[in-house]
Write a protein that binds this DNA or RNA. Structure first.
Lengths: 199, 199, 199, 199
DNA sequence: CATGAATGAGAATTCATTCAT
DNA sequence: AATGAATGAATTCTCATTCAT
């Protein structure tokens, strides 16, 4: 990568980081392009060299964050798998558990992500390549179990969607019940879904 | 109700109706308070006598519509029940079917509702009374079956949430698959969830 | 005074009191007629039965307060005069002293009065009668001294004006010096002015 | 100064000039930011690049005008001093005379300045530098006389304040007497004040 | 007299976007 | 590629005032 390419990457990165901080801090509606460039210490016009508008940035951030969450939790699972035998079902619960943890500790992140996790992963993944990385993580999860599932993507979509929705409603809105009350039901539901797709 | 109370109700109604039409037509961001009052044939200031801002109207509309959808589909189910024996599970499928139909035919409505159906019903229901009406509909659905469920509200939350999410993603975004492809999996998932809660 | 006359007086009074509280609290520009009637627990329209607009209220309040200040300080002076011999010059100093005290303890009042004290007394006195009461106070002050002044009203105007201006600038703005530093110079100036008018 | 700096100065100037014209013409309350930018032939938003709001402009204008008045009258006095011997006292009278003249001929200016002359000079002078220029003018006035005064700034504050107040009340409100009737008393008062500060 | 809902002109201010430098 | 001053349409919201009840 050339010098100038590198400089550009840094600027893009600065804009994304600043925007993310502001979006999670005060919401997208109250964040202006001015705020973003000020925080990134760049000129107003520069923003438009990299992004169409702030909604463009938001979409890219949601996609990036969604992928990152899955990747990081996937990595943790791999580590766990190195230490003890982990069945597919256990793996899913493990991931759900880690994601719930993460969101419980970082409500602004959850607020920002909304219920867009699966959407970001399955249809907008910031790049095709990232999207595939996510799907691969799931595939690797199934592999050792030797199980066969029809319609894997739909299954994963449903698993993520149920998990994301309950996180959002229980953690942010504390309704219909608290996350703690929901957790066992959520896990049971995840299990039900998996069973349903097993061939 | 007094004359003036009645007049106020009509004005409030006009604002809500106009706002709903505009929100579904061109989205909330592109709809201005000016647009709403113009359509309602009222003065700008009048809007602010009834609502805080357009987001206030949106929240109230989502709540109202959510309740209305459940009520109407509930009514249809009652009619159906008068004509033939309908089990609880069949009833849920029937309702899901009707809701999918409704959203398929009215994408702007779905776009407007987003994934807020359960939230509107379980935590914001425009009034406590409306919220209870919704829950009652579900109760009536269970009754004749003689079945017993633990944590009914959580079950209903999950049923509605899964249905709402899949509708939104499959109908609006056509992803991860089309609604037609999703439908059998959705139904199976609804069934799994019910089973899981049965005592 | 009839029953209804009395009721009207009470309402007028409530509006004046509420307005005064709000004006001193957050300034006239940030006070709305709505605020005033809400505080007075009256209807919006009622305001306009008693006053032209909020500036009308302000003018009346300034005039009333100006007169009240002079009267109260005049009363204190009379009491003082009953206890010890007080020359005209001493009387003026006494009054200035009391006024400075009052304003130092009640900056919002001073902020509200601005530099309008003499104007309120000499040209707008809420009623002709009140205005005359003020002038009489000064006359009574001169009487016992046996001194003769030309152009008494101009003299009083200058005395009040200098006192009001220095209070405002020194107490509110603390400039060009503090009130404590200004006080001896102010007193000297008041004495100079009196001397100048003595025949 | 760079090209763009120069352009900015011109725009700021245009806004100040337009605002001043409108403020003196129809008062600050009836002048809107829209009026100002229209007159300055600039865009609405541009106003907010240079000033916080119209009150910010007013404050800056009052300060500028106050300084300008003192400077111009000071210049006239210097010219006069070149032609004939002028004592300190005569100088003050000369300046008072010129200021009264100016205000009599330009009542809107006086209306706009209000009783803020000394405040603008002694505490807000648009810049520290301008403020000092004003004080210097007074110093130069004293110098040739060889006289010594204690607390010069307080003396000048009082001289200006009395002059400003009487101008405002007599010229604008014609009360308690006309400016012509007030003039000899004003002059005498100015002389008394000077005497009082002489060491 | 009193009310307070309704009005609607219009004020303030913002902010995305452009473009000359 | 980067800048940031300038733009001005767009938007929100206020608030004095009216008037039917």
């Amino acid at each position: 990568m050339g010098r100038s390419e590198e400089k550009k990457r840094i600027k893009r990165e600065a804009l994304l980081t600043s925007a993310f901080d502001l979006f999670t801090e005060k919401g997208i509606n109250k964040t202006t392009v001015s705020d973003i460039v000020k925080k990134a210490e760049l000129a107003k016009g520069t923003f438009y060299l990299y992004f169409k508008d702030k909604y463009d940035v938001r979409d890219k951030l949601i996609a990036m964050r969604a992928v990152r969450i899955i990747e990081q939790v996937g990595d943790e699972l791999i580590k766990e798998g190195n230490e003890r035998e982990v069945s597919f079902e256990e793996g899913i619960i493990f991931m759900a558990d880690k994601i719930i943890d993460r969101f419980t500790k970082n409500k602004p992140l959850l607020l920002f992500m909304g219920k867009h996790l699966s959407e970001a992963i399955f249809t907008r993944g910031s790049t095709e390549e990232e999207k595939n990385r996510c799907l691969e993580i799931f595939d690797k999860l199934i592999e050792p179990s030797g199980k066969v599932f029809r319609n894997k993507n739909v299954m994963f979509y449903l698993l993520i969607e149920v998990m994301n929705s309950t996180c959002y409603d229980c953690i942010i809105r504390n309704a219909p019940v608290s996350m703690d009350e929901m957790r066992p039901e959520l896990y049971a539901t995840l299990m039900s879904i998996i069973k349903q797709f097993e061939v």
